[in-house]
Amino acid sequence: MGDCQGHEGRAVALLGCSGIGQLMSTVVRRACIRVAEQHPEVVLLSVGALTGDVPEVLQQGRNLPVILVDGCREHCGTILCEAKGLKVVSKLFALKLVAKDHMRLAGENRANLGETGLAAVADVAAGVSAEIRRVQSELAAEEVA
């Protein structure tokens, strides 16, 4: 269970921008998939399904606290969440989660990340995991109060 140990049972939803044009979108997508694979209590939402108005995915996003990760300055994830009425409790901007040493992504291939791109994925995954842990702690504290 890794980072979320002790906070199990408090389900949260995770939405990464997962666009396709920007390299950072690939970084965010891969990071969010990794986090969801490590934490069974995290429900990974898909931008595709949200733009497709898939009812069960919309329902998850409206019922669970959502942690949103925007990938680029267009902030499409934010626009999508607002339009679909998702319950966003935390908004992260991927670039702010990437260590300075891993920001030089020029030359990276968005379809096949190299060393720096994968390091950026690890940074974003770590930042998202930490935020999940923080949100879960907050939810647990609210339950006690």
């Binding site: 666009g19 396709i20 595709g48 499409c76 999508l80």
Partner: peptide
């Protein structure tokens, strides 16, 4: 979905200047 994403990148490379890459969240926004 991952296959579709990767195949889209590969097809884009093959089609060159005759193809554009559409991004769902960007189109939504």
């Amino acid at each position: 979905a991952t296959v579709g994403r990767q195949a889209t990148y590969a097809a884009l490379a093959e089609l060159g200047q005759r193809a554009d890459l559409g991004c769902a969240p960007a189109l939504f926004a």
